[in-house]
Write a protein that binds this DNA or RNA. Structure first.
Lengths: 215, 215
DNA sequence: GGATGTTGTAATTGAATGATTACAAGATAG
DNA sequence: CTATCTTGTAATCATTCAATTACAACATCC
C-alpha cells in the first residue's frame, strides 16, 4: 500500500493519530508494568510491546513515572466505574439483596482482573505505600471502593469485609499463577475451588481450560 | 578500644563474624526490598542500611537475586514455622476449636507482618508469578500453608478460605499504609475496624498509637 | 614472627536505561 | 508548490548500578 520500496522488510510503522497511539501504549504499559513492576519495567519494553520506538513512548508521556500513574489511574477508574454501574442497576429489595449484589460485583471484578495487566498494576500500587504519589492514589482508590459499598450499595460491615477479603485472596491466587500448576499439584486446584465454593465457576472454567489446553 | 588514632572520625566499621554480618544484611535487605521491590532496591541501599560497603553485600551473597531469594525464604520459613508451632500446641476439642485456633494463628500472623519487611517481601513475591524462581517459591509457600490448615489444623474449607482471605485483606490494608491517614480521613479507620471487628484490637491499638504519636 | 585466612573497602568497569536531540517523512493548509 | 504541523525514528548522552578487582587491616596458627 504505502510502501515505496517493493521489497521493504521492516515495515516503517504505520502512522496513527496520537490519541489512538496513546491508548496502544497504555495497554502495552499495563501489561509490562504488571509483569515487571514499576522499577523492573523499561520504557523500551513498553515501546516494543506497543510496536513503536522508545523515544516516542517517553515523549508521549513525559516521563516513565507519569506513564505509570496514567496506567494506574485507568485501572482504578475502570474498577470504580464498573462497580458504580452495577450498583446503579435497579434491583428489587429482598432477603438476599446484599448477597446477590455482592455476587454481581464479584463477577464484574473477576472479569476485570482477568486482564492481568490491571490485576498486577493494582497490586503494584498496593505495595507502593511508601511512594507518596502512588501510595496516595492507592489509598484513595481503596477508600472510594469502601465508601461505595457502604453508602451506595448499602452493604453492612460484615458484607464489606467479606467482599474485600475474598477479592484480595483472589488477587493473590491469580497473581502467583496458581492455575499454572493445576496439573502438577492437585492441591492447587483444590485451594482455588475451596476459595470460590463454586460461586464463580465462570472464572475457574476459563483458567482450567487454559491449563488443559496448555497441557 | 581498638582505635589506633585518637581522634578518628569515621569509625572503620567493626570487624564482625561473617555469620552475624550475614544476618544484619538479611535484616536490612528485608526492609529495603520490602520498600522498593526487587528491581527498585539497590545493593548499595542494602549495604548502607546494614552499615557496610556495597561490594561486601555482593560478595556475601554472590548476586542480588540470591540475596532476595534468601530474604524470601526466611520470611516464608518464619511464617510456616510459626504457624506449625501454634498448631502443634495441645488444644482441647470443642465447638469453637477451629475458631479459637484461627484466632491464635491470626494473632501470630499479625505479629509477623507487623515487620513491614516481611509483609512486603511476601507481597513482592506474590506479584512475581512471572519469575520462574520467585514465582515457584511463592506458589509452593502458599500451598504449604493451605495444606497445613487443611491437614494439620483440620480446618474445613470455609474456615480456610476465610482465614486466608482475611489475611490477604489485612496484608493489603497494611501495605497501602491505611493507618497513616487515620487522622485525615475517618473512613480509613472505619475500614480498618470493619475489617477486624475488634477481634484484633492489639494491632489496631499499636498502629493507632503510632499515628497519634506522629500527629 | 612470618604465613595464612578472614573481614572489610576504594576504585573501577561494563551494561542497562531514561531522557534528549536532531532529523525524516507523511499529511494538511493556503 | 511551499510552509507548517504531526508522527515517527536513529543516534547519543548521562546516570545508575551490579559486579569485579585490587588492596588493606586484623586475627590466628605454626
Amino acid at each position: 500500500m504505502n510502501e515505496t520500496s517493493g521489497t521493504a522488510a521492516a515495515q516503517p510503522t504505520e502512522r496513527i493519530p496520537a490519541a489512538e497511539r496513546r491508548e496502544q501504549i497504555l495497554a502495552a504499559a499495563s501489561v509490562v508494568f504488571g509483569e515487571r513492576g514499576y522499577s523492573g519495567a523499561t520504557t523500551d519494553q513498553v515501546a516494543k510491546a506497543a510496536g513503536i520506538s522508545q523515544p516516542y513512548v517517553v515523549r508521549m508521556f513525559g516521563t516513565k513515572e507519569k506513564l505509570f500513574l496514567e496506567v494506574l489511574a485507568r485501572a482504578l477508574d475502570r474498577l470504580i466505574v464498573g462497580f458504580r454501574q452495577i450498583i446503579a442497576e435497579p434491583r428489587e429489595p429482598g432477603d438476599d439483596e446484599v448477597e446477590l449484589l455482592a455476587a454481581r460485583l464479584g463477577a464484574a471484578y473477576v472479569d476485570l482482573i482477568e486482564d492481568r495487566g490491571i490485576l498486577l498494576s493494582l497490586m503494584q500500587a498496593f505495595i507502593s505505600g511508601h511512594n507518596p504519589v502512588v501510595g496516595a492514589k492507592a489509598r484513595a482508590g481503596f477508600l472510594e471502593i469502601y465508601r461505595m459499598l457502604r453508602d451506595e450499595a448499602g452493604f453492612p460491615p460484615d458484607a464489606i469485609r467479606e467482599f474485600l477479603a475474598d477479592g484480595m485472596l483472589f488477587n493473590t491466587l491469580l497473581a502467583i499463577r496458581l492455575p499454572d500448576i493445576f496439573d502438577e499439584d492437585p492441591d492447587a486446584e483444590e485451594l482455588m475451588r475451596c476459595t470460590f465454593r463454586g460461586k464463580l465457576d465462570v472464572v475457574l472454567g476459563a483458567t482450567a481450560a487454559e491449563a488443559a489446553e496448555h497441557a
